[in-house]
Structure formats: structure tokens, C-alpha cells
């Protein structure tokens, strides 16, 4: 474990806690894309299948349980909670996210490190995570007004993968044979997708005005 990875995990944890806090306290999920939340639930479900077969550390297992629990409970809140579900703007959140799942699955079947069930699903979860934010970014473009909790959620979510890139560089430099091109490229693509959001988020923060994304 290195400081970059710890910072990445804590930033990731903060992003889901910000979202859960928002939904749980103000009982609203306005501006949040259910599609992105469903994709994240699939990402965690397919990535943490090894939670039963391999044990790395208490920390690793605990964080997996937290990410699984939080992502599924956010989906549950947005789909079934009587108050929250009414605040979900279904007609704006129209990204065909299933069109993201299939190509990622096909790509994972083609490009992976080992052709085993767990490894292919793990690779699929990497590719899917890279694009999972798209429905949320599209929704933010549409609704244009971003309440700062949703803005913080997306900002933290993008930041965590940025820290992971620093972690991969550190591990590449300090651990022999630590080479995982698939992870690195997927992580880089994921972070680049946030680039324009980061730009506008930083501009709004610098000019201290409400975050507005261009149409």
C-alpha cells in the first residue's frame, strides 16, 4: 500500500459517502444518474467476486464490502425508496447504458491477462468502470445546474482514479514485474473522460460562481 493508493481509496470512499449522505439526508437524488449508479453496482459486483476466494487484508475486504454495500443501496434508494424515487428525473437520464455493457464484455473476452472466468469478469469491470460515468456526465450537461453535492461526487470520483494513476507509476517504479497495461490504459481513459468536467469545476471554483457546463 502506498500513499497514492490510500488517497485514491479514501477519495473514492468519500465520493460514495457524499452521494449516500445527499440521498439519505435530503431524500433526493435530483441530478444523479441511476444509470451510472447501476453501472457502478455491476462494476463492483464483477470486480469483487474474489472476495470469497482470496484474502489480501482486512482493509481490502472491508473496503470491498463498503463499496458493494453503498453502490447497491444507492441503486435501491433511487429505484424503490418511496420519496427518493420521485426525485429521480427519469426522462433526462436516458443514456443507453446497456450499450456500454456489451462492448465492455466483448472487449474483456478479447483482451485480458488470463482467460479465466474471474479474470475476464475482472477485466470487464475495469473497462466498464472507465465509461460508467458517461450517463452522469450527460445528465449534468442536460440539467446544467449542478448542485454542489453532485458536483463534489463527480469531482471526487474522477480524483480517485487520478490518484490511482500515481499509484501505478509508483508501483511500476518500486515493484519489479508490476506491469498491468490493461488496468493502466482503462484507468487513463477513465480519468481523461473527467478532464472537461474538471476544467469547468475548477473554473467555477476559481471564479466562485455556480458550476455551469456548456450545453
Amino acid at each position: 500500500m502506498n500513499i497514492f493508493r490510500l488517497a485514491g481509496d479514501m477519495t473514492h470512499l468519500a465520493s460514495v459517502l457524499v452521494l449516500l449522505l445527499k440521498i439519505h439526508t435530503i431524500k433526493s437524488c435530483a441530478g444523479v444518474s441511476l444509470k451510472t449508479q447501476e453501472l457502478y453496482a455491476i462494476v463492483f459486483a464483477t470486480r469483487y467476486l474474489d472476495i470469497f476466494t482470496s484474502f489480501y487484508s482486512i482493509y481490502n475486504t472491508l473496503m470491498k464490502l463498503i463499496f458493494l454495500g453503498s453502490s447497491f443501496s444507492i441503486v435501491w434508494y433511487m429505484r424503490y425508496h418511496k420519496t427518493v424515487r420521485r426525485t429521480y428525473d427519469r426522462e433526462q437520464d436516458t443514456f443507453r447504458h446497456w450499450f456500454l455493457v456489451l462492448p465492455c464484455l466483448l472487449l474483456a473476452l478479447l483482451i485480458h491477462e488470463k482467460f479465466t472466468f474471474l479474470e475476464v469478469l475482472w477485466t470487464f469491470s475495469l473497462y466498464l468502470e472507465a465509461v460508467a460515468i458517461l450517463p452522469q456526465l450527460v445528465l449534468l450537461q442536460r440539467t446544467r445546474n449542478i448542485d454542489n453535492l453532485t458536483g463534489q461526487y463527480v469531482f471526487l470520483l474522477g480524483g480517485y482514479r487520478g490518484f490511482y494513476i500515481l499509484n501505478w507509476i509508483y508501483r511500476y517504479l518500486t515493484e519489479p514485474h508490476f506491469v498491468h497495461w490493461i488496468t493502466w490504459i482503462a484507468g487513463l481513459v477513465q480519468t481523461l473522460l473527467y478532464a472537461d468536467f474538471f476544467y469547468y469545476y475548477f473554473q467555477s471554483w476559481k471564479n466562485n460562481k455556480k458550476l455551469q457546463l456548456p450545453a
Binding site: R5, D9, H12, D50, S54, Y56, N60, M63, K64, F67, E113, W122, Y164, N167, E175, H177, F178, H180, T183
Partner: peptide
């Protein structure tokens, strides 16, 4: 060893 480390990240 390396393989074991492959998926020690979240």
C-alpha cells in the same frame, strides 16, 4: 508473487 499482487487493488 506478481500474479498474487495483480488484484490486490480495489
Amino acid at each position: 508473487e506478481t500474479d498474487q499482487n495483480a488484484h490486490d487493488e480495489l
